[in-house]
Simulated scan of single mutants.
Amino acid sequence: MDTTLSITNNSMIQVSEFILLGFPGIHEWQHWLSLPLSLLYLLALGANLLILITIYRESSLHQPMYQFLGVLAIVDIGLATTIIPKILAIFWFDNKAISLSACFAQIYAIHTFMCMESGIFLCMAVDRYVAICYPLRYPTIVTEAFVIKFTLSMILRNGLLTIPVPVLAAQRHYCSKNEIDHCLCSNLGVTSLACDDITTNKFYQLFLAWVMVGSDMGLVFASYALIIRSVLRLKSAEATSKALSTCSSHVILILFFYTAIVVVSVTHLARRRFPLVPILLNVLHSIIPPALNPMVYALRTQELRVGFQRLLGLGDTESRK
């Protein structure tokens, strides 16, 4: 076993780096996965940057809904960049070693961006709730200050509550194994190598999932339950269709995001029998949403499509048609 060890001040042997082995069971040909992962990463970067530039340049898109979408694009870029470059380095250059500090930093970044994505979905759900249930009060409630305050509150909440995850992981003693059968530093994957008790780590991981992602998911679905109730009271079929169409893109992404989280959590329980499945799903859940989100909004939101056409120089062509 390739193990790098050092002696700490308390005379306990401590590993100085971890070795990321990649996907369990397919180590010999896992490098072939680098092609779809690199394409998804390029798509995520390009599409989200395109959304950010379009929102910035188009004054008609300087609205709360698109401002939240811009924040989501930044979060998606951060999440994908936290994970995929290291995976590609493992596949292409056999760069499997990662220092303890870099590993703990990756743990923090993954948790922060994942919780931030959940928080932004909540912000967007509140925006749609106010727009549909209180349309006359929408301009006075959902202002630019509202977007800034809500976004900052999500950043502070996620940034502060996720700090204990890497801190608790760093306090454990890693004195024997340092090989992680994974292609990224997951909290439980790393702490499972510790020689001391990790009950606190497991408890805080569960606490974080319920308090942050769980509460966000509950509030998001509560918001849409109220939206559906309000929409069903509309007498005009046209008004009902218009109200639902404004939420369709958001609903698709929310269902995919939270369904994937549930699936990853359930498959993690069966990891001993199917070790590859939860790890592969974990990686895909970190790269598919960043690549999928811009495409869904681009296909289903006319204002964004028009903005893309103008940015890419297709606006005149479309108008001539």
Rank of each mutant, 00 (worst) to 15 (best):
S6K: 13
S6A: 10
T8N: 12
T8W: 10
S11L: 15
I13G: 13
I13H: 13
E17R: 10
H27V: 09
H31L: 11
H31I: 07
L33Q: 08
S38Y: 11
Y41P: 01
L43H: 05
L50P: 05
L52W: 05
I53W: 03
I55W: 01
S60N: 13
H62Y: 06
P64Y: 02
M65E: 11
L72W: 05
A73E: 00
I77E: 01
A80M: 04
I84C: 02
I84M: 04
P85T: 09
D94Q: 08
N95R: 14
K96G: 05
I98A: 01
I98Y: 07
S99V: 05
S101K: 15
F121H: 01
F121R: 02
M124G: 02
C133D: 14
C133R: 14
Y134D: 15
Y134E: 15
P135Q: 10
R137E: 15
Y138I: 04
I141T: 13
T143I: 02
T143Y: 06
E144D: 14
A145D: 14
V147L: 03
I148Y: 09
L152P: 00
S153W: 11
I155M: 06
N158P: 07
I163R: 01
V167C: 03
A169M: 04
Q171Y: 09
H173G: 07
C175L: 11
S176I: 12
S176P: 06
N178W: 07
N178S: 09
A194G: 06
D196W: 02
D196M: 01
T199A: 13
T200P: 03
N201V: 00
Y204V: 04
L208S: 12
M212I: 15
S215R: 10
S215H: 06
D216Y: 08
M217D: 11
G218R: 13
G218A: 09
L219V: 08
Y224M: 08
L226M: 13
I227E: 07
S230Q: 12
V231T: 01
L232A: 13
A237K: 15
E238S: 14
A243E: 05
L244K: 11
S248D: 13
H250V: 07
F256Y: 07
F256D: 02
Y258H: 10
V262P: 09
V264S: 01
L269M: 09
A270Q: 04
R271F: 09
R272G: 11
I279K: 05
L280E: 01
V283Q: 01
H285C: 12
H285N: 12
H285R: 11
I287T: 06
L292A: 05
T301S: 11
Q302H: 14
Q302Y: 12
E303N: 07
V306C: 05
Q309M: 15
R310C: 12
G313M: 12
L314G: 15
G315C: 10
G315N: 06
T317H: 15
S319F: 14
